[in-house]
Design a binder for these strands. Structure first.
Lengths: 239, 239
DNA sequence: CGCGTCCTTGAACCGCGTCAAGCCAGGTGG
DNA sequence: CCACCTGGCTTGACGCGGTTCAAGGACGCG
């Protein structure tokens, strides 16, 4: 039975085929041989670890990546899910060490550009540097808005937000074409900044309201519009 | 009696006299007549409001500014205190509207650069654009680290953080040269993301431990090192 | 079949926000 | 000069939401 396939083919970052993140990819800027700088990372391996020195940045050519940050008592928090065409490691660029770590969720191909190469590309290409600068500006806005909203949300709202975010990033198709989420309760909790217990509670509550249903342990977002509506007061985009 | 004067003369942003934020100031880039683009804003007035369109960015030449963001039910949150030499309005640059508002805490002189002027300056000057890009990258790191730590702190820790942050931004000298804080309980609460009641509680607790003392309603950070130590596990910088 | 892992759910605890009452200082008007 | 009012600060009491702990169930795997 083949009722499972990738939902998203456009850029995850902005849902736009001509998104400038893609335009900034190595192929676009044409300065580097993408093939030459390509690296394969196996499922489960770190692409870079938290607090490791920054040698450059990465562009994801194919695969899914989980960006994590551990808090003061060692617990892991997922700060981002990234996929094809995304920039990776830019948070560290210009600093000494990576403030976050990146783990491959499946086999991943990345294109690695080291600091020197990048600097040359910036210097040679105004458009590229300007686009990256604008990218950072946008990231800053998004980051601050997200943390502002997160602080005001209840646990239930944060869990719903996490479900929608996952479905936009890694969504598969479940029954009737609704998004299917295969991450564990713990991983959802790591995104929603809570614990697995609360995620479980919220899910049973959503089940009773028929907004989600189950396929084994996997979660089907049955009433996508309803879910979106319940956190619409905060935002319209989950990335 | 003249036991009150400004503590800080270096750049608030990074405690560094040759900080690149200053290097990016209009005088440095030498493209614009700073005098010509200078605007005076009276105490209490908005420099720009939340959700207003972005026409350009500002450099504070002199004065103190409170950057605020209102949450879902209209309450105000202080996201930043800015002083001489700081960039202002950069969060909005590249977007449609300002995600935050800026209020003059005293009479303020700013230098305004509109979008077109700025674009020309970027295009003409690689160093400038590169520095601004790096500035954004650093802001992104700082913003994310701050929100990560904030989420893990208790109310007491957040209030202490707010006190230290204020003292680094707007610190005056009180008795024995210790920093003196003249903001109201409510304003401190707006920084610490809590309410005035809790701030009051924390302050009496700190008074009992002799970490702060009072001069009327104003707060003297008597044991600066002790206060810093109590939140050292989170960070070493408050800006 | 037994074991481990993940999920679920109830119960207890606790931090923090809210409300209300009281206090103090400064300002105003009689 | 005193009476009164107002706005900010302080402090106790209370309740809600959410985290934590513990016990039990479902499922897969050797």
């Amino acid at each position: 039975m083949n009722r499972r396939k990738r939902v998203t083919t456009q850029c995850f970052e902005c849902k736009n085929a001509s998104c400038f993140v893609k335009q900034c990819s190595p192929e676009y800027i044409g300065l580097i041989s993408a093939k030459k700088n390509q690296i394969k990372i196996n499922k489960g391996q770190y692409i870079f670890r938290e607090d490791s020195p920054v040698f450059g940045i990465y562009f994801i050519q194919q695969g899914r990546v989980k960006v994590v940050s551990s808090n003061i008592d060692g617990k892991e928090q997922i700060v981002r899910l990234a996929g094809d065409g995304h920039i990776l490691g830019h948070r560290g660029y210009g600093g000494e060490t990576h403030p976050v770590g990146a783990v491959a969720q499946n086999d991943v191909w990345v294109c690695f550009l080291d600091n020197a190469l990048l600097y040359d590309a910036f210097k040679a290409n105004f458009e590229f540097l300007y686009a990256i600068m604008m990218f950072y500006s946008k990231e800053l806005r998004k980051s601050e808005q997200r943390s502002k909203y997160f602080a005001q949300m209840t646990v239930e709202e944060r869990v719903i937000f996490a479900l929608l975010y996952i479905s936009e990033s890694f969504g598969l198709e479940g029954m009737e074409g609704s998004p299917l989420i295969t991450l564990s309760r713990q991983e959802i909790a790591d995104i929603a900044a809570t614990n697995a217990d609360q995620v479980s509670r919220v899910l049973t509550s959503l089940k009773n309201r028929e907004q989600v249903s189950m396929e084994g342990k996997n979660i089907i977002l049955a009433d996508l519009e309803g879910l979106k509506k319940s956190i619409a007061r905060y935002t319209t985009s989950y990335s």
